[in-house]
Design a protein around this nucleic acid. Structure first.
Length: 294
DNA sequence: GCGCAGGTAGAGT
DNA sequence: ACTCTACCTGCG
């Protein structure tokens, strides 16, 4: 196991930030797999333990204040999780770029001070945000869980704990377009199956996509059936880590209208994806904002 | 029962 | 180039 003291890092906030859907709180609250979407009954300072599933990997992490314990070998931490959680990123520096007179964003960043932009698996992110459209987070989680249970490879940890990996494109490419309705995807089933086919057949090249600059990657993603501008931007931000990607959904649109009538400041351009997450999290979870997750 | 949830494709002006 | 609408499903 790896012990680290990490400023600007909160597993609870990351879990509730709506960028990943296979992360859950293990300790406190209920045994319910969706428990991390519930309000924390104990104060957030208390020791808490989280389960994170990403691609074909699994890790448990506990956190108390800034002290974290990653339950994995050093090699796996250095080779994968460190980058996954963007632990080299200086989020204090991002927050310091917020204009002093921008009280709204300053407050949003204060609420979500521990958010990190994850470096998620590209294919899993494409599927996750195809599913996210016109959907709520609880059901998005369930949809992805269903897909993994039905089509994901069964994996085992060193201690014999079993879990399901996220299925590879090939595992879904051969399905009937409506097959994933059995996983509760609804009309999004055909989006996911067609994307799986494009990737399995090589029409869409994931490794090439990873090398492309933001705008070009975005254009490529828009070619996928079911991927519009918002979903393309989410993929650019959460999988390709292009911080200039700025997904505009209903919450962000509302915040922009209310707080940035003259447009989002251009000086934020290079990190506007990070700032977007602070706003999104704030709009979802701050009291009085009517956040659906509470 | 009805509207909404991290939108998008397709049809219609 | 816009604007409008149908779309699976479950929860309040």
């Amino acid at each position: 196991m790896i012990k680290k003291t990490i400023p600007h890092f909160s597993l609870d906030q990351i879990c509730r930030s709506g960028q990943c859907f296979r992360m859950s709180r293990l300790s406190s609250c209920h045994e319910d797999s969706n428990s991390c979407t519930e309000p924390s009954l104990k104060q957030s300072q208390a020791d808490s333990r989280f389960l994170v599933l990403a691609g074909s990997r699994r890790i448990e992490i506990s956190q108390q204040g800034e002290d974290c314990i990653f339950y994995c070998e050093n090699e796996e931490f250095e080779d994968f999780w460190k980058d996954y959680f963007h632990l080299d990123g200086d989020y204090g520096a991002y927050i310091r770029q917020i204009l002093p007179e921008d009280s709204y964003l300053s407050q949003a960043a204060r609420h979500g001070f521990g958010i990190r932009i994850l470096h998620q698996d590209l294919w899993e992110t494409i599927v996750s945000f195809l599913i996210s459209q016109q959907n709520n987070i609880t059901r998005i989680r369930r949809c992805i869980e269903n897909i993994c249970r039905h089509y994901g490879e069964t994996m085992y940890t060193d201690f014999g704990i079993s879990y399901q990996a996220f299925p590879r494109p090939e595992a879904l490419a051969g399905l009937d377009e409506d097959s994933l309705m059995a996983c509760n995807l609804g009309y999004r089933s055909k989006y996911v199956v067609r994307a799986a086919r494009n990737i399995a057949e090589g029409t869409t090249d994931l490794s090439r996509l990873r090398r492309l600059p933001c705008q070009e990657a975005r254009q490529e993603l828009l070619k996928l059936y079911g991927v519009g501008e918002k979903v393309a931007d989410c993929i650019c931000l959460f999988a390709l880590r292009h911080f200039e990607a700025f997904p505009v959904d209903t919450h962000i649109r509302q915040a922009l209208q209310g707080h940035y009538p003259d447009g989002f400041p251009s000086c934020y351009h290079k990190i506007q994806g990070v700032l977007q997450q602070y706003i999104f999290y704030y709009e979802l979870h701050s009291p009085g904002k009517g956040g659906s997750l509470k």
